[in-house]
């Protein structure tokens, strides 16, 4: 931390725009680290307000990640609640030098989702598919809706790790190292999984919609 702050002050004294940008980036990283550290220290000490503040900060991202993984709001609620329960009960297992709180929480959610899907494979029914499957046929839907339904179906059919990798990469803005940390794999393995996921999605969409609509 001290080293990062001294780098920050030296970058600020340089005066060039690149250095100013670097300094701003470094400052935000340092602030983020400090925020995380302070928040988690307070939670470890049993501070309920700090806990609620952390939940409010990460709730949307965690619930959206769980929903894109499971496709069902009831299961999403269970997984989200379990994730935040663990934030309260296992806050002392978080290490600032290993991961940010966001990465740590997404890792918990990832593991809970994978466990859940492996226990009950039949439960991977997609609520986000049902809304279209119930009444209207694809032919009667607007083109955009058909494409979206096909995409959701293709996502739901991906293996869990591929789905997780593509969701974290495309929707959550995590870096490749952070995603590798969340999924507990190497960056090389992540790239391989991501490439397979994109190939799988393309092939599935090509099969359902034909070459013209995907390309």
């Amino acid at each position: 931390m001290v080293r990062a702050l001294s780098r920050l002050s030296s970058a600020e004294t340089c005066g060039t725009s690149d250095n100013a940008l670097a300094a701003a980036g470094l400052r935000s990283t340092v602030l983020k680290m400090t925020d995380d550290q302070e928040l988690m220290t307070a939670i470890q000490a049993g501070n309920a307000r700090a806990y609620e503040s952390a939940v409010k900060k990460h709730l949307k991202s965690i619930s959206h990640y769980a929903f894109r993984m499971l496709g069902d709001s009831k299961d999403t609620e269970d997984i989200t609640q379990e994730t935040f329960l663990r934030l309260w009960t296992h806050a002392d297992t978080w290490r600032s030098e290993k991961a940010s709180v966001s990465t740590w929480l997404h890792r918990i959610t990832h593991n809970l989702c994978i466990d859940y899907m492996r226990k009950d494979k039949s439960a991977i029914t997609s609520e986000y598919l049902d809304e279209h499957e119930s009444s209207e046929r694809p032919a009667e839907l607007p083109d955009r809706e058909v494409r979206l339904t096909s995409l959701k179906e293709a996502l739901a059919q991906l293996p869990e790790r591929q789905r997780s990798a593509i969701v974290l990469n495309h929707y959550h803005g995590f870096s490749n190292r952070e995603i590798a940390e969340i999924m507990d794999i190497s960056v090389d393995a992540l790239e391989s999984i991501l490439a397979r996921a994109r190939r799988g999605l393309k092939a599935e969409l090509l099969a359902t919609m034909g070459p013209n609509k995907n390309n």
Binding site: V55, H64, F67, Q81, R147, L148, L205
Partner: peptide, 17 residues
């Protein structure tokens, strides 16, 4: 296509949590 897939409103879920 991936950009078009936005999660529906989960405000009720978030209130429950």
């Amino acid at each position: 296509m991936l950009d078009q897939f936005q999660v529906a409103d989960l405000s009720l879920l978030e209130r429950n949590v």
